[in-house]
Design a protein around this nucleic acid. Structure first.
Ligand SMILES: NC(=O)c1ccc[n+]([C@@H]2O[C@H](COP(=O)([O-])OP(=O)(O)OC[C@H]3O[C@@H](n4cnc5c(N)ncnc54)[C@H](O)[C@@H]3O)[C@@H](O)[C@H]2O)c1
Ligand SMILES: NC(=O)c1ccc[n+]([C@@H]2O[C@H](COP(=O)([O-])OP(=O)(O)OC[C@H]3O[C@@H](n4cnc5c(N)ncnc54)[C@H](O)[C@@H]3O)[C@@H](O)[C@H]2O)c1
Lengths: 251, 251
DNA sequence: TACCGCTTGTGAACGCATGCACAAAGTCGG
DNA sequence: CCGACTTTGTGCATGCGTTCACAAGCGGTA
């Protein structure tokens, strides 16, 4: 059953039983890719494209075509064999599965360098993630509007989060404060947390945490540089596996 | 630590053939975790801890102990049975495998909200990733120092990157500019790119790209909220506006 | 209507990552 | 010096995710 998009229903669109079972079975990795497909498809829709094949879409999303079709199959069969997919239809179904038919209010905690950038960022509201609350401990910041939202004191976190129905908490405080901020978000009823502080957060089972760790990203890149440089070196000097277990000999 | 130039100084240890083969075999997922272990271990070292067991370390890093040991086994056998691992030894071996014995200069392109935050961030230099170059197109920004580094015009990217031996390029421009910026970084010889713009970059095989996509992260969280809300609804069998735990689901 | 060419959807094979369980290898107390 | 205890390192089984390959299904065409 093909539904239309952008329906301003007040109640969150419930998934049908069949969809619900499917949603439970979607691999985490596929969910991440579905979000990417959604963005590509939205871009296509904006440019007036109405139909797309798995080959075209997979190219635009940078993945294998078979993988894309399998990912889409997790949410149902909405393509037409011999033709491809209707862009609008696909967009609306991915949105539904990802729970984007409902708005998700976001609270940012820690309005420093990163917090300011996040609060000022215009890309979230347009995608259904309005930033509706900001928190910090710094007295100089309290009451100051950032990106149009005044900063609240962290002590008000429970009241404000409940009042504004915050469903996603973003942690952008220094590492030592992160766990305590996390605990406060959790007791304020926030069940989803995006953590920028380089610490491992402890949370109850019913809370979902995702972390963005730039230092780790850089170190992974570093690993690949090193590996590459090393491969190049081994090609140029043809050194084989002799001299095991020795200290490094330098000329 | 380590000199700017990657010649085999005392600290910039080249990998031995045995290690090189190992490095090639380390699963990507394990590399990411090694970076996490490294941070945890560094923190322990700072607090004067000299030895640690796989159990303790795995707890602190938030992973399974067996997985941790397997990850460490990819880089060699540096533990002592019955005792555990020497923190310093482990740190130095992980650093070596990740290529952190050498400094990696970072260039940030697009000094807007996010670019400012990155340029001002003090956490990178301390970990061997000094930000040494900033680029933008905005005439008002050129020459202005951000985080101590003056902003250069994007047209100078090749000359500046070569001169300062930039090995990692960070893209923080608006999406439409990202691919062109990426191409310019690549022709400037940069082989590692960290991309914050929500676009799929096309690069040659010898260039490594990692992307940080906040919208995707939020949508993954959204998916889990939806799934959870839905489970709750199916349990309470006949949605009355209340979910589990007394959490109110928006009417 | 019947055929043809194209694209989807998916069963099955494969490969990678995770977790278990235990022998090997070390320490420490007696 | 020995034996008990602790913790590592890893072979193996299991499960998840990716890729392949092709039958099924649809639109267009004669
Ligand atoms: N800036 C970056 O580019 C960057 C990059 C990678 C990681 N990070 C991480 O992101 C986090 C934030 O970085 P930043 O550069 O914005 O730091 P920052 O120091 O600029 O800002 C931190 C803010 O958090 C506030 N704060 C401190 N304790 C708090 C508490 N208990 N409750 C609420 N607010 C509190 C401070 O008042 C400050 O405004 C850090 O953990 C950092 O490691 C930042
Ligand atoms: N700010 C955030 O919190 C946030 C969050 C998620 C994603 N992003 C993404 O990160 C990127 C940057 O976001 P932002 O908020 O900092 O944007 P911004 O508009 O504040 O800054 C962009 C900067 O890039 C510069 N620029 C434009 N074209 C350029 C070019 N061709 N070469 C060099 N510089 C150029 C602009 O002059 C500007 O200074 C965007 O792609 C955005 O989607 C940002």
């Amino acid at each position: 059953m093909a539904s239309q998009r952008g329906e301003g229903e007040t109640t969150a669109t419930p998934l049908e039983p069949a969809d619900r079972e499917r949603a439970r079975a979607i691999p985490e990795a596929a969910v991440a890719r579905l979000a990417v497909y959604l963005r590509v498809l939205s871009g296509m829709a904006d440019q007036g494209v109405t139909a797309v094949s798995s080959e075209e879409l997979s190219q635009a999303a940078g993945v294998n075509a078979a993988k894309l079709r399998k990912d889409l199959s997790y949410i149902g069969s909405y393509g037409t064999r011999g033709v491809g997919y209707d862009v609008e239809v696909l967009v609306s179904h991915i949105e539904r599965i990802l729970g984007l038919t409902r708005n998700h209010s976001v609270a940012v905690v820690g309005i420093g360098n990163l917090g300011h950038a996040l609060a000022n960022y215009g890309g979230f509201p347009g995608r259904g993630f309005p930033v509706t609350a900001l928190f910090d401990v710094d007295a100089d910041l309290i009451g100051v509007p950032v990106g149009g939202i005044p900063v609240n004191h962290i002590d008000e976190i429970t009241a404000v989060c409940l009042e504004r129905e915050v469903s996603i908490g973003v942690i952008a405080t220094p590492p030592p404060a992160a766990q305590s901020v996390c605990d406060r978000l959790v007791s304020a009823g926030v069940q989803c947390i995006l953590n920028f502080a380089p610490v491992v957060l402890q949370v109850p089972d019913n809370v979902e945490v995702r972390k963005v760790d730039l230092a780790v990203e850089m170190q992974i890149l570093s690993f690949h540089v090193a590996r590459r440089a090393d491969e190049a070196a081994s090609v140029s000097n043809g050194n084989n596996g002799l001299g095991v277990d020795g200290m490094v000999i330098r000329p």
